[in-house]
Amino acid sequence: MADSLPDTEHHALARGGALRPYILLARLDRPIGWWLLYWPCAWGVALAGGAFARFDLILWLLLGAIAMRGAGCVYNDIVDRDLDARVARTRGRPLASGAVGLKAAWAWLALLCLVGLVVLLQLSPFAAVVAVASLALVAAYPFMKRITWWPQAWLGLVFSWGALVGWAAVAGALTAPALLLYAGAIAWVIGYDTIYALQDREDDALIGVRSSALRLGRHVRAGVGGFYALALLLWSCAIWLVRPDPLAVVALAPAAAHLGWQVMALSVDDGADALAKFRSNRFAGLLVFLACVVVGTA
């Protein structure tokens, strides 16, 4: 999962000289990816009541999301370098184009993981164990597009894991609200990454790569809407368990309105529109975070 880079940004990064290929390889120029990885972390902290009491934790998790999303992109490009070279949108990536060698990519990956380790050491032992447990899912993700029509579901397992880490860091255990928050995040990720995959449907079909966008076919809009609705239902259940009050669930109304707009306004045959809708989930994540803050601190 990554978004296109405008030409103006390429020119700006060109001034970065020797660092430019490594910035591109870790997608440090594209903050949408680490925002989407970060928001579930922040939701877990906020819904567990730590939005203000553990603001330091929220900042550490932000650094961790930036570093580990970068590490994930490097690892993904190492695995996919041959496939990337065959897709128009990705053949210019540093590994696929030869701008970065394989050994240098592994070294860059190790450095980013060291940053992640620093963040890991800031967590409680239980939360650290929960965080480390995600690594098997991360390692398997790049291969999913080769064996299943639903690699977006596996991405959901990976990108939503922070909800469990954030909750565990504050609450010291994984209880039902955390699991429901995590499950809702998975449905959200499947929805927005299906939108993202609309950009690559033709190339994916040609080279044999699978995606939910291809699997859903003419029913993409309904499919995305269904996953978003499931996400809202699961989040509502998580909130209800924390605060059994109908007004608490209403805190999700702005997020529900935004996700509904995405589905209704989506142009499934327009790659630029799909990218714009995908990117708008940074704002959707913020709206869910604010709902968790309201509920968790009430």
Rank of each mutant, 00 (worst) to 15 (best):
S160Q: 07
S160C: 11
W161A: 02
W161M: 04
W161V: 01
G162Y: 00
G162K: 12
A163I: 07
L164D: 02
L164G: 02
V165M: 09
V165Y: 00
G166S: 13
G166T: 09
G166D: 05
W167D: 02
A168L: 09
A168Y: 02
A169D: 09
A169F: 05
V170Y: 06
A171N: 04
A171H: 03
A171V: 08
A173F: 09
A173S: 14
L174G: 05
T175R: 15
T175K: 11
T175I: 10
T175V: 14
T175S: 15
P177Q: 14
A178Q: 09
A178D: 04
A178I: 13
L179A: 14
L179G: 09
L179N: 07
L179V: 12
L180Y: 13
L181P: 03
Y182D: 07
A183I: 10
G184F: 07
A185I: 07
I186P: 00
I186Q: 03
A187K: 07
A187I: 07
W188E: 02
W188K: 03
V189N: 03
I190Q: 06
G191L: 06
G191K: 06
G191A: 13
G191Y: 04
G191Q: 08
Y192V: 01
D193K: 13
D193R: 14
D193C: 04
D193Y: 06
D193T: 08
I195P: 00
A197Q: 12
A197N: 12
A197F: 01
A197C: 14
L198Y: 03
L198V: 11
Q199T: 09
Q199M: 14
Q199R: 15
D200I: 10
D200Y: 07
D200E: 08
R201Q: 15
R201D: 04
R201A: 10
E202L: 08
D203E: 15
D203P: 03
A205C: 07
A205R: 15
L206M: 13
L206E: 14
L206G: 00
L206Q: 15
I207G: 02
I207Y: 04
I207E: 03
V209A: 12
R210D: 00
R210F: 08
R210E: 06
R210S: 08
R210M: 15
R210A: 14
R210C: 06
S211N: 11
S212E: 03
S212V: 07
S212G: 14
A213H: 08
R215C: 08
L216T: 02
L216V: 04
L216W: 13
L216Q: 09
